[in-house]
Simulated assay, not measured.
Amino acid sequence: MSIHAQSQDFGENPLEVRDTDHYTSEYVHSFVERWDQLIDWDARASGEGNFFMEVLREHGARKVLDAATGTGFHSVQLLRAGFEVTSADGSPAMLAKAFENARQRSHILRTVHADWRWLNRDVHDYYDAVICLGNSFTHLHDDNDRRKALAEFYATLRHDGILILDQRNYDAILDRRVEPTHNYYYCGDNVRATPEYVDESLARFRYEFPGKEVFHLNMFPLRKNYVRRLLREVGFQKVTTYGDFQETYHDKEPDFFIHVAEKSYVHGGEEE
């Protein structure tokens, strides 16, 4: 699909689209152009503070692969903080927008178009950390796809590297039908991101922008403990999970979970 496509196409029954390979066609040019209205870079930076930079520095990370760069928010934040960053995404439209956003902020991104399932075919390097943020991992609809992607992340990490991966609190949405508050991640004014349909194998979100523009994304509603188990089964030795950037939280409160998975073996280490 051309990066300049303007309209989404989910077919006659959008609930049937539970396919990993469909996500690149969901990020059409017109949606990508509106994406930063949804995010609001300044509000998100304020909400996150230095959380990711502190975690990376705590683990001695300097060289980072931003595996889901989107429109470039975290890549630019990390470059500003002095990290060496490679920015990857599966959407050419997102990569083009990220490069433009970074250039406007006096940074040049090193970009790579890559599918996580075959990441090391396109990314030929080793990193201290891989970050996969913005609820991006939920674009993988198949268990084998998720395992393959995590194995690729694991393989591109140095022996003491870490993976930082986030996800929506789908447990709260699935079990209690709680709508997100958007206090941290989706902070844009006059923009709504709401779950339109949810079952155990699909979370279909509706994004409404000023001017009555509406877009959709179909994602897989990952449960927190399932993701933690996958991380361990792929080989990560320790997994620490934060809720909205806090290590202590109640499961019903966070909009997002952030998993920090450590590759290096820690003798007698316990997962948190």
Rank of each mutant, 00 (worst) to 15 (best):
A88C: 01
N183F: 15
R103M: 06
L174E: 01
Y170G: 00
M94T: 01
N13C: 12
T156K: 00
V266C: 09
E213R: 06
V214K: 03
F153M: 11
T24A: 12
L78D: 04
Q237H: 13
D189Y: 09
R177G: 11
E271I: 08
F51N: 14
V198E: 05
D189K: 07
L38S: 09
V55M: 15
G161F: 02
Y185A: 02
N101D: 07
D160E: 15
E213K: 08
Y226E: 14
C187D: 01
K224S: 03
T240M: 05
E253V: 07
L165R: 05
Q8L: 02
A114P: 05
R176D: 09
L231G: 01
R80Q: 11
R146C: 03
A98N: 07
Q37S: 09
T194W: 02
Y154Q: 08
R121D: 15
T138M: 08
H259L: 09
R44Y: 10
D175Q: 11
T241A: 04
H113N: 09
E33N: 12
D19T: 14
D115M: 08
Y197D: 13
M1L: 06
L202M: 07
F51H: 13
A114R: 04
G235D: 00
A67Y: 03
R229A: 14
F83P: 08
L163F: 02
L65A: 02
R158T: 14
A68T: 09
T248P: 00
H159L: 12
S264P: 00
L157M: 10
Q237K: 12
V227C: 05
S7N: 13
F205T: 04
F52N: 03
A151T: 15
K263Q: 07
L65G: 02
L217P: 00
L95F: 00
H267L: 11
F209E: 04
Q167I: 13
T240P: 00
G211C: 06
E58H: 15
E100H: 15
V112T: 07
R177C: 05
Q104H: 14
C132F: 02
L38Y: 12
M94R: 13
K263V: 06
E262W: 08
Y23W: 13
F83A: 01
R158E: 13
D255I: 05
V178G: 01
V17Y: 02
A61C: 15
D166G: 10
S2T: 10
R158W: 00
M94K: 13
R168D: 07
D143G: 01
V227S: 04
D36N: 14
S30N: 10
R168E: 10
L230Y: 07
A88V: 00
S87K: 00
N50S: 14
L165P: 06
V198F: 08
N190I: 03
A81Y: 00
T69C: 15
R168P: 11
R147G: 11
Y27G: 04
A88Y: 11
R223K: 09
I108C: 14
L217W: 01
E33H: 11
E213M: 12
D166A: 08
L78F: 07
E16F: 09
D142E: 14
D89S: 00
H113T: 06
V227K: 01
N101I: 03
E200F: 14
A203K: 02
L202D: 04
N101Y: 12
A98L: 05
N144A: 07
